[in-house]
Structure formats: C-alpha cells, structure tokens
Design a protein around this nucleic acid. Sequence first.
DNA 1: GTATTTACCGGGAACGATTGCGTAAATAAA
DNA 2: TTTATTTACGCAATCGTTCCCGGTAAATAC
Lengths: 340, 340
Amino acid sequence: MKFEAVTIKHIAMELGLSTSTVSRALRDSHEISQATKKIVLDHAQKVGFKPNRIAQSLKERKSLSIGVIVCEIANSFFSQVINGIDSVAYEHGYNVIIAQSMESAERELMNLEYLTSSSIDGLIISVSTETKNFSYLKKLHERGLPIVFVDRVIDDIETHKVIADNYRGAYKATKHLVERGYKKIAILSNNSGLSISQERLEGYRDALKDANIPLRENMIAYCDHGGMIYSEIESAMKMLLKQRVKPDAVFAGSDKITTGCLRFMKQKNIRTPQDLALIGFSNTDLTELLNPPLSVIKQPAFEMGQASASLLLSLIESKKPQNKFETRIQSTELLIRKST
Amino acid sequence: MKFEAVTIKHIAMELGLSTSTVSRALRDSHEISQATKKIVLDHAQKVGFKPNRIAQSLKERKSLSIGVIVCEIANSFFSQVINGIDSVAYEHGYNVIIAQSMESAERELMNLEYLTSSSIDGLIISVSTETKNFSYLKKLHERGLPIVFVDRVIDDIETHKVIADNYRGAYKATKHLVERGYKKIAILSNNSGLSISQERLEGYRDALKDANIPLRENMIAYCDHGGMIYSEIESAMKMLLKQRVKPDAVFAGSDKITTGCLRFMKQKNIRTPQDLALIGFSNTDLTELLNPPLSVIKQPAFEMGQASASLLLSLIESKKPQNKFETRIQSTELLIRKST
DNA sequence: GTATTTACCGGGAACGATTGCGTAAATAAA
DNA sequence: TTTATTTACGCAATCGTTCCCGGTAAATAC
C-alpha cells in the first residue's frame, strides 16, 4: 500500500508546461513570467503538491536530516538534550533521526553504519560507556562527515564539542559536602573510560585536596554501565559500605547512578542524610519531590542540545572544510536540598 | 563540506563492469557468476561501499523510515513508547524520525506537513491536547498514508490504534481510593477533548457509581494543556480546594499532572495522604522514591510502542489497502504505595 | 531595416540504484 | 552439425528534481 503523491511531472502535464518550467516557477526563478508562476503556484496549491524530499536529497546530495546517537532517550538528561537539538534543527528545516545505543558499543556501531549510509548530513553523538574503539567514528570523520560530540566526548577526534563544566560541577558538589562537615566522601563514578567520568573525578579530587582531606582510593567506585543495570550500583555501594572506614557521604556521577543510589539506600533502610548523605549529577525535575529532596548538580541539557545542533549545522553548511573547532563548556548548577 | 561516498558507478568503473552487473552482484542475483560476485563483493568491502539509501528510496518509492509525533520526548511515558517503537523499527531496518508537538496544534500540523513530504512510509501519532481539527490527518490517511494512533486516538479515522486500558485503570484507581475509605474523590483530568481523558473519566464515574458515591461535578477539574504549564495545575487545584466540600483524595489523569499535583501539595504544605490522598497515571520509575511514595497507575508504555510499530509495519508492508483494523487495549497496572 | 538584447520556456542530462530486455558466448539437446 | 537452451553480462529507462544549454519570439538599439 502506498501513498501516491503528486509530482512536478503531473503538474507539468496538466498545465501543458515542461517540468523545468514548473520547477522554476515553484522556486520563483526570474526566468519565469509572473503569469505562468501564478498559474503553476495556484495549481500546485490546489492539488496539494509537496516536493519530494527524497528526490531533492538525491539531486542536492544532502538529506536535510541529522543523526543523533545517545545511550537512551528515556533519560532526562538526554531527552532534554534532544529537545534542544530538535528545536534548532527544526528551525533550519532539518529532520532529526534518533538512535539509542543503550550503552552498547555494538548497537552504537550498528546505528552508526545505519545512519551514515548516505542518509544523514551530520551527526551528534554522545558515546556509549562501552565504546573503546573509535576507529569507525574516526574514519567517518576523516571522510568528511560533520560530527559534534555532546557530553561524552572523544579527545582523539578534532571537531566541535559541547560539554557541561563537569570539573567545576564535581568540585562544587564535593566542596559543598566538605562544607557540610562530611569527611569521608565516596564517589560513585560512571565508567572510567568516559570523558565525563574523568573530569568529574578530577573535580572531586581537587576539591578534597583543597580541603586538605586525604583521598582514599577505596572511596572510589565505578559503575561500568553508567547505572544502566541496577545490580552494578548495588554491588558498588556494598563495596563502599563494607570498607573499614565507611563513607558518610556519596557523590554520584550520573543521573541514573544518583537515583539508583537513592533506591539502594531506601532498600537497605539507610537514612539520608543522617546515615549517608547523597549528592549527584541529575537532570530530572522530580529531584525536589524525592524523599529526601535531593541535592544535585544540574546540567544545562537543553542549551547543550541547542549548542551542539547549531555547531553541527554550521559545519554542514560551511562550504570549506573546517579546521578550527571549539569546545563549548557550559556551566552547571548546584541545587542544595535535604539530602546533604 | 560534504561527505564523498563511493557509489556503484565507481566500483563498476574500477572493475571494468557495468553498473547493472555490480548492482546485481551486490544483491546476490543468480544472473551473475560466482567469480564476478566475489570480485565485486571483495572490492566493495575494500572501498567501504554502502548503498545510498536516498537513491534506493527514490527508486523503491519508500524511505524505510517512519515518523513519530508525540507531545514531548522528555516525558517518561512517551520516551518509553518511543523506546518500544525504536526497538521494533530497528529490527526491521526502519529509521525513526521523531517530532514533538509540545501540545501545540500548530506545531503538530507543521510536523505533519514536514514528515509527510514524501519522506516517511508511515506515521505513529499521539495527538496533542490542542488538536481539534483532524482534517489534515484525515486527508493524509485517505491518500493512503499508513497511520497508527497510540495512546491518544481519534475515533473519526479508521486505522489501527493502541491504547492502554484507561477505563479499567481509572476504575481500579478510584475503587482503590474508595476502599481506603476516601469519600470525596476529586479528579484532575487532562484536556476534555482527548480520548484518554474521556475514558479515564468514565472509569472514575463508574467506580463511584458502583460504590454508591454520588458524583459531584465540582470535583472534576481539567488541565487543558495536560499539565504542560504548571500554573494550570495550580489553579485547578486551588479551585478544587476552595469548594465548600473539600476533596479528601485526588486522582490525577496524566504523568505531568500527577507529579505537578504533588509539587503543588508540597508547596502548600498539604500532607499526603493525611490531608489529601493522591493517585495518578504515571510512568516515571521514580515514583517509589518520591515523598511520599506515590500510588500510581502505570501503563505498559514500552509494549504499547512495540505494538504500534509492528501494526504500522504490517500496514506499510501489506500489498493491498487494509480495511480491517484493530484497537489493541493493553492493561494497566495499579501500584499501591504510601500516597493513598 | 538589420543587429542585438531580453524575456520565457523546453529538452535533456544529471543524482545513485534497480531492473526489464536484449544478446553474445557457452553449453546442451537434437 | 544444427538448433535450443542456459549463462552472464550490458543497455537504457526509471524514480522526482534541478539546472545547464539551448531556442524562439518580441522588444529594443543602431
């Protein structure tokens, strides 16, 4: 079953004109008389003509659509980022094609192959926790595919990048814990390979150092799948809690980890913040309704999406190959509530 | 700046073959000798040939992509639905193009025009709260565009529909409130024009009737934008609470309204459930971590997405125009927690 | 009255992949 | 050896648009 669309050819036939004339009339070319233009436009309007974007894409060698790969849509941070991307793309007449890696390198690669088979003009990607091999991405980039990294970036590939100020965010969060009198501050980090993890860990380290609190390596735990599977949060927390010196506060490195951590504490009847304080990166707008209301570091997700989209569009629409790239660092917000 | 892809023509040239031979070899046609096939395949592999999907689409008159219009991605219910759609579409080699109406009829129409300019093979839509005029959608459907409605459906258009069992969900929720001893049960409904609102209201009505509790019209309030703007929840709640007979429980008709309601109660220092009980439709996985843990009716969002995608694909891939359509009603789950 | 410009429009070749048809060579059947 | 059949490939049209060449008439210039 298919959708029979009216084409330029039909209009040409019905009006006794050539396709070139119709095309030009529709594109308001100076080579066509006002009279003819009016006839064509009116008729096109009447029969509901819509140019076939596929044909245009083939001819113009661009698809007017951009691909977005994130780990998961059902994650407040990424859905807000997508929102931002969408708003900019839409304004410029671009489609957004979204793919989810689900934190799997394999799915990410498949998405990548899929999106790039000549059907996208550019790509915005936040790499999965699993991704270790960036050669395919690199090859695409070398072959000229415009790419913008958002949130989780790769140093190896030189292009525009948009990130939150993870270092300062983590620093502020840790400093806040210190100021509240916590001394044994653990960090529940995302996968250690991720840029965001490293930056956040660095902020945590420096904040402790500046407060003259010695860093204990066993206060650092990792969730290799970014908290995608609850059990990894569970075991990481168990590990932290069975140390000789138990932590009195936890700093969680991602949205999923933060809420997962709270879930764990609820299950184990660990009171927050009396037994264990909690702060973490999170973008859900429900954090203040939680029990207890969570102190969080919030990223400007929507704005990050907007920024990455406009950077990507500038890459796509620039005639010459670009060689000056920027990394936009957008500041985070520390929201202090009851959990610390 | 563009991405120079290798085409079938390049391969043909380099191998001294015709494009037809190359094409056929790649598609494993029986008309090509094994030897030639191997040569072509190896060379294609070497140069990283990927067929141009745009050209294929033009030729085959299908784009292998489906459009999805929802009000907002950053909404747990819809992001889960999209997840389900994505999983099925992906398996069948289809792209998913997502557009957000933001509950605006105007944006919805623009998205519709945009997606359907020959670039999607089918559409899954959950109409916006604002949409009153379905003529454009109807025209598209009549012209043969396969459409599946999910969640918010339109009776006028005969096609596959996937909904949650809103009636029974609302009935169960209301009955639960009754069983807990609440007598003055208010409902904070979504826009009255929406199918889901009507079904949920019906369930609420019947549950009250079956419990011999008289229905008070002033216990019914509407949020015309589905809670998209907080102030409408606020004023609806204020209206309910300034009645002579104040409600002792509220049943909220959507995810945004449910959490918005809780937010309102927090702000006004209304204790839950002591002062006012709360139950509502919601799909966020944070409800049990809220204060208090919320009793909710949860919809099988992921499964609804899967169902709508497979129904859509069956429409797209069926040769003949379909005339037998089904409405899949998927059951909801009542999760009882502390708020009631 | 001829030359040149302008205004308008049609023909046809792309874009990349697919496919019906035609045909040479190779093989089988007569 | 002749005819029929199969094998293996090329030619060219097609999908819907766009755009480079032209071409023809009228309008203007010389």
